[in-house]
Amino acid sequence: MITREVVIKTDKLTKKFGDFIATNEISFEVYSGEIFGFLGANGAGKTTAIRMLCGLLTPTSGHATVAGFDIYKQTEKVKSNIGYMSQKFSLYEDLTPRENIKFYGGIYGLTDKEIKGKSDSLIHQLGLEMQADKLVGSLPLGWKQKLAFSVAIIHDPKIVFLDEPTGGVDPVTRRQFWDLIYDASEKGITSFVTTHYMDEAEYCNRISMMVDGVMKECDTPSILKEKYHTDSMDEVFFELARGAKRTAD
């Protein structure tokens, strides 16, 4: 459920590396419960922006608050109020699902009792009863990704950052993953998601498009399609990204 409560607010957020401007004065707001797509070509500045919003990288200039906390001064508060998952980093492969849940629950300061409760309900919800005590490394990728998402929101964060969460998974699992994002949204958790699958752009409430460090567009998929006179997000992306000069990662 989307409310008007702002959970991310940036104002001319900028990061320079030497004379290279990775993100250039980006300003936008994201609402509570919103599924916000953060798209752009490789090298457009997405990763830099996400790292700043997660409190991992200090901006050069501009302002931003995440979950109400300042990303310059309150980085630890930011970190404890967000979740993060990517295709590359998610779970410890040589721990079991139950151990991963316990580990992350502990990191985020949940009590033993809370962890026990969460652990049982999560494993049941994902239908992982049979695999709960096997090593994560032996699970199919799709299960890992679904478990990783559940673990990333184990502490009920305001926002979860998802960096290409569905890369390489089969088409059925990819859709099941989006069911999880919708469920989280119902609970008021905001998803800030990057993807290379343009059909997934359609599942977002709003989409932003980064081109050469600048946020070129930020609107609903239907308004963007109308604006670019097309019926596919693929075309919108193509129109915008084609003008890009940068190709760096």
Binding site: G40, N42, G167, M198, F238, A241, A244
Partner: peptide, 9 residues
């Protein structure tokens, strides 16, 4: 894999 749609094309 991991390449944006323009570069893929």
């Amino acid at each position: 894999t991991g390449v944006d749609t323009v570069s893929r094309k």
